[in-house]
Every structure is written in structure tokens, then in C-alpha cells.
Measured scan of single mutants.
Amino acid sequence: MAASAHGSVWGPLRLGIPGLCCRRPPLGLYARMRRLPGPEVSGRSVAAASGPGAWGTDHYCLELLRKRDYEGYLCSLLLPAESRSSVFALRAFNVELAQVKDSVSEKTIGLMRMQFWKKTVEDIYCDNPPHQPVAIELWKAVKRHNLTKRWLMKIVDEREKNLDDKAYRNIKELENYAENTQSSLLYLTLEILGIKDLHADHAASHIGKAQGIVTCLRATPYHGSRRKVFLPMDICMLHGVSQEDFLRRNQDKNVRDVIYDIASQAHLHLKHARSFHKTVPVKAFPAFLQTVSLEDFLKKIQRVDFDIFHPSLQQKNTLLPLYLYIQSWRKTY
């Protein structure tokens, strides 16, 4: 089996927390979720979201995140109150960019949308954001926290390059993509939290790379249903696996070995980020709550012996909000 052949990389499970039942964490995340308004986002309300009498641009960002990046939404709820709305805006910006690729039928249209967001970032730093909910909220975040323009532009530029429907040539190319998107998002989150620390940035770099790799793995069944495969070609070739094997949902050992190798790289990034947690300011830990969902996925895929098409991998963990709150309460990542 794939797991038994390579099992030495995987460390002990961390979500089991001995003695936790003896201490009762304060009510927090679930209460916040219940208090949030929840009407559906419609095209009509989106168009009017920044106008008078609408929910408001902040509510639009929150709803977009809740629907399109639920794990990011849950993590954002546990940030300090003064930072929450800015991170909602930042993550909503990322969602807007991420959904361009799947929402257009022609690359030219995707490039036009990316050009809109490039100009939007430029206009935000000229205090002239367009009348668009996410743009307005992002402008507020930039003004409030003096966010670095370079990180925002890196996210747009990398998403634009990724409009080509090509597999990553190697794991390094996937890591570079993750660094310029997910890690950049974390650098900006640290700025919102008021953290300027080399060790925190180092952790953000590795956690962002782990996030990018896990996202690529999780999306494999969806991409396969659209006749697309984006997994690193070098690892596929190493194990003699073709793109057609993934399109046919082949579950042979060599296919699972490909998934094992890729998942192991995410695991190593996560492990390395945690190896120097004592040197990272505690104030930075809330920015890294996504490690909970990353670890949850890596454990699940290990349990199914790296069968990327196993139905259990597509099921939401209903206990994730609780695990996130516990992680926040324990002040760790």
C-alpha cells in the first residue's frame, strides 16, 4: 500500500487533545456564526451592495467568503475584532481572482478581468477605488493598515499566469505559485494584525505553500471532471502515471504514490512551519489557523491510503469550527 511504503514521513496525529474535556472553552465561534445575517447573495444585490440601503460592502465580502471560501471565513471569524473586516476584504479579493479561471470560457475574457483587478489595485493606492464592493472594502483595508501593494499585485499576476490550462511542470513550480498567492495572502494578513517579524514571515511562507499544494490536491477530482489535470508532471512521470490515469480515476498503487509524494511535500512544509513556532510572536498565530484544515485533509487522505478520489475527501468536517476554536484558544498553530 502507498501509505505503508512511505509511512515514515507522517508524524503522530495532533488533533487529539488529552485532558481537553476537563476545561470548557468559552463560547465564541458558534455564537458569532449565529449572529451573522444570512440572506442569499443575488446578482441584483451584488450590483447594489455598495449603494445606500443595501447590506453594505462589508456584508457582501463576508457573504462571498462564506459561500466560496468557507474555511477562510471560519478562520477570519476568530481574528481580533479590529482586524476582521480587513481580512474579510482581503480574502474576498482572493476569491474574486480565484473564480475568474473557472467562470470564463475564453482566456481573453479572463485576461480582461485580471486587467480590471490590476487597475483596481492601482486605483486603490491612488484613493480612487471603483464602485465595486470588494474594491471598496480592500481600499478601506489598505488605508487602515498601510498594506504593501507588492503582495496584492503578486496575487493578481500569479492568478493571471495561471489562466493557462497547463499542469505544473514540477513541484517547485506549484510551490512558486502557492508562494505568490497563498503566502502573499498571509503576509498581508500579518500586516493587518500589525506583525512585522521575520520568523512570522518564514512560517507564512511555508504554510502558504502547504495551502497551495493541498488546494491543488483537493481540486483534482473537480478538475478531472472537466478533463483537466494540474498535478506536477515530474512526480507523475517518476511513477509512470499519465494524465489519462487521473481522468479515468485510476486507483492503482502508482497513482496513489503520486498523491503521496505531493501530500508529503505539504506535510513537510507544515511540519517545518511549526518547528520554530517558539520564535514566532503569539500575536501572529491567528493568521495561521488554516493549519487546522490543512492537517485535517492530510490526515483524511492518509486514512484512505492516498486515494484522491475517495468520497470521504469531499465531505465537510462538521467539527472544523470546534477544532479551529480550540486551536485559537490554545494559542498555537
Rank of each mutant, 00 (worst) to 15 (best):
K172A: 14
H272D: 06
K278P: 12
E82K: 15
A54L: 12
S225I: 09
L90P: 01
K161Q: 11
T279C: 10
L319C: 11
I259L: 03
L298C: 05
I262P: 00
R218C: 05
D245P: 01
D234A: 03
M114H: 10
E106R: 08
K331F: 08
F93S: 02
P80L: 01
K140G: 03
L79F: 14
D252H: 12
K209S: 02
R227Y: 13
Q251T: 14
I136N: 08
L320S: 04
H145S: 08
F285H: 11
K172W: 10
T181R: 02
T291M: 07
K172Y: 12
A48C: 14
R68V: 08
Y260N: 06
A92D: 06
V280E: 00
K107N: 11
A49E: 07
A287V: 12
T332E: 12
T220E: 04
R68S: 11
Q315C: 14
K67W: 07
R330W: 08
W139R: 04
E63P: 04
K196G: 07
R66N: 07
D102F: 07
T291K: 05
A210C: 12
L185Y: 03
V134W: 02
P52A: 14
V241Y: 01
M237K: 06
I155V: 10
S83F: 14
E82W: 15
R227P: 02
N176M: 11
S205T: 07
V46P: 05
T148M: 04
T57A: 10
Y187A: 02
L152W: 02
L198D: 05
C236H: 02
G51C: 14
Q251K: 15
Y187F: 10
Y73R: 01
Y168H: 12
L324Y: 11
L185I: 09
R226E: 08
D165V: 11
E244H: 04
F285N: 12
F306T: 00
Y60C: 07
I192K: 02
V255S: 10
E106W: 09
E137N: 11
L185K: 00
V304A: 13
W139V: 03
F88I: 14
N176C: 12
A141W: 02
M114L: 11
S225K: 11
D127L: 02
H199A: 09
L313M: 12
T318Q: 11
K300N: 12
P286S: 09
M112W: 13
S205M: 05
L231P: 03
K161T: 12
H202D: 04
I171D: 00
T332A: 13
V121D: 00
E106L: 09
K316S: 11
K172Q: 11
D201L: 05
A219P: 01
Y323Q: 15
T189W: 02
H272M: 15
R256Q: 12
I171E: 02
N162M: 10
L238G: 11
P129G: 02
H239M: 02
A219N: 05
Y70Q: 08
L193F: 08
P129F: 10
N94V: 04
D261A: 09
L193V: 08
S264H: 06
K278E: 14
L313D: 00
A141H: 01
I207M: 06
H223C: 14
Y177H: 07
L64C: 07
R330S: 11
P281L: 02
V134A: 09
R218D: 01
F288G: 01
S184F: 08
M114W: 05
R226H: 14
K196N: 07
L78I: 13
Y168C: 12
P281R: 01
K271Y: 09
D102L: 06
Y260S: 05
G240H: 14
H145Q: 05
W329I: 09
Q132S: 14
C236E: 03
R249Q: 15
H206F: 05
A263V: 07
P130M: 06
W117C: 06
R150S: 07
Q314I: 11
K316P: 09
G212E: 04
S293M: 13
S242G: 06
A284D: 01
L188N: 05
V100K: 05
K67H: 13
R113P: 05
L78D: 01
A89P: 01
V292L: 13
L322I: 14
Y177L: 03
A81G: 13
K140W: 02
K161V: 09
Y177Q: 07
T332W: 11
L313Y: 00
P129K: 11
N250E: 11
E173R: 03
H310T: 01
W151K: 05
L268H: 10
D127C: 06
P221V: 12
H59V: 08
P80E: 07
K300W: 05
R218H: 12
Q251I: 13
G72W: 13
K119W: 03
S45C: 10
T120A: 13
A141T: 15
G212R: 01
Y187Q: 04
D305R: 07
A135D: 06
L289A: 07
D234H: 03
E295Y: 08
A81C: 14
N250L: 14
A81I: 12
V258Y: 02
L270A: 02
H202Y: 05
V46R: 12
P232W: 02
S76C: 12
D165E: 13
L77V: 05
L289M: 09
